[in-house]
Design a protein around this nucleic acid. Sequence first.
DNA 1: CTGAAAGCGCTTACAG
DNA 2: CTGAAAGCGCTTACAG
Lengths: 339, 339
Amino acid sequence: MTAVRLSDVAARAGVSVKTVSNVVNGYEHVRPETRARVQAALDELGYRPNLSARSLRQGRSGLVALAVPALDVPYFAELASSVVAAATELGWTVLVDQTDGDAGRERDVAAGLSGHLIDGLILSPVALGAADLRRSERDVPLVLIGERISDGAIDHVAVDNVAASRTATEHVLSLGRTRVAALGFQAADHAHSGVAALRRQGYVAALGAAGLAADPTWTPEISSYTRAEGAAATEALLAGAERPDAIFAFNDELALGALHVLARHGLRVPDDVAVVGFDDIEDGRYANPPLSTVSPDKAALAREAVQLLQRRIAEPSTPTRDVQVPFELLARDSTIGRR
Amino acid sequence: MTAVRLSDVAARAGVSVKTVSNVVNGYEHVRPETRARVQAALDELGYRPNLSARSLRQGRSGLVALAVPALDVPYFAELASSVVAAATELGWTVLVDQTDGDAGRERDVAAGLSGHLIDGLILSPVALGAADLRRSERDVPLVLIGERISDGAIDHVAVDNVAASRTATEHVLSLGRTRVAALGFQAADHAHSGVAALRRQGYVAALGAAGLAADPTWTPEISSYTRAEGAAATEALLAGAERPDAIFAFNDELALGALHVLARHGLRVPDDVAVVGFDDIEDGRYANPPLSTVSPDKAALAREAVQLLQRRIAEPSTPTRDVQVPFELLARDSTIGRR
DNA sequence: CTGAAAGCGCTTACAG
DNA sequence: CTGAAAGCGCTTACAG
């Protein structure tokens, strides 16, 4: 709590505050011997700048926020980790915030985290649509991540969910499966997030191209993308008259729940039922059997989001961009068996 | 970027800045009609306080930091989620930081996150010992979480790792297993964290009480607590002359790696090998088979940490405390089979 | 290359 | 119950 101020350092070094500030901020034109004297004083006193003061003065804090629905959801945890890494390289400190997928929290966060504290925000929205976000009196540079809810009015980075979902469906179809259940359909009032609708679209398109129609009995509605919901929905599927021979889960957690229930029922994966997920979270790689999945390039997602934000902060009125990052289908044991 | 200031609101409402400040901060003695007029101006202008200015003035920011080694490690992700929830209840905003288990980063973070920006810090150290932490010129209230590296000089909250580890070991011994391997021993120079040493202690104690000795062939050294390491160590165990009939992994990720390899080798869990982990991460609940584990009360851990920090911030010189939170053994299929 | 001084937006004694 | 003014620690034109 010893609050060493710039002026303390200045007194010690026998120079003005301005000169100390110059040294601290790496300003070029300081005489070497002055610099050395100031640096010595800085070190002796253990000076560290007061960021509140600096931020008040400059109008920038060097803080950016990342807001995700939940930190304990593996996908978001992995994403957060990547974003923090990418932002740290730029010398930013990241304030990670948890919205719980709550519209109010998302709005608050989009409104600038209740204060002129952050220079920018990367938001993974669930509850809020593009319209809400545009309407909200934002005064903070914003980049949306992971959802194609943007209508072009806000910078946005995501994977092509429709194509990716179609690829996953085609993968199990190519294995000769014809009764392909989908886990992830949501009732209209839950489907704000967009992801559900987009992945559904890809699934239906792939079925259609194969001359198949989506069968409502194989597309149970679920309320959240958790293992528990995946397990419950799979139980329901298995209770039906005919058993699916493949399950495409719209995220890995749903798939892991499905795997759990299939094992409980003594069904073999993939022989009886093939399972493919989406997200490529680490859990899937070590599941029994290892989970096939669509792997979005999370590092690219994070990198692009941070770059878009940097650009937006530097030039607030630059045209918005919509960046797509690549994905890849990882065929593991849960669809193609032991290699 | 419309930067509405207190003085703008004051002008609009026809009162002084002081009065607006009083209303914003919920000061009691403001005449109701004045309050109403100010509130109206506040709403119309969409005023939001500048936190940098407030923090500069008050010396407090309302920000606390949580520093964990990695956000994408399930245990820390779940812990972070709990801490954020507990802190939010106090009206704090949490800045989550990732140290990568790097000593330099931990030191920086302990030194106040490079600026008088945060009011306090909850740190889950890996690389730094109590001595380092005490020595570092800290000027920020600090609470340590999860490791018993504290020597009483710093507030600390954790589970009783020795007792918990002993309980896990006793559990498999009580099932009649006698060749109990342990996954989690670390070479001395990796064992900074203390957790490895403490859990090892509990394991050895339980074996000893059962008249058994720890056998080096069943306690392979591992370098990190990941699924990959758990898998590799289990491969090594299975390559040995005699097979263990139980594995106690010092965390669930190691255990999940073990489960993966046991399945690959066609071994039945728990019939051939029982497996018990530590941490109770969600992945374990849906593993095949579901993973028995020691479950520390993470919510309590988070709550206590936040309370200790609140107390330390309010009274910087209050005596340090060492809080232990309860744990519970969850016996699931991986040790006791299908119920 | 360096200094003196203003001002970022807020809160808080101090008056009234 | 309300106002005028100082000051938190910094950066930045403005001089020299």
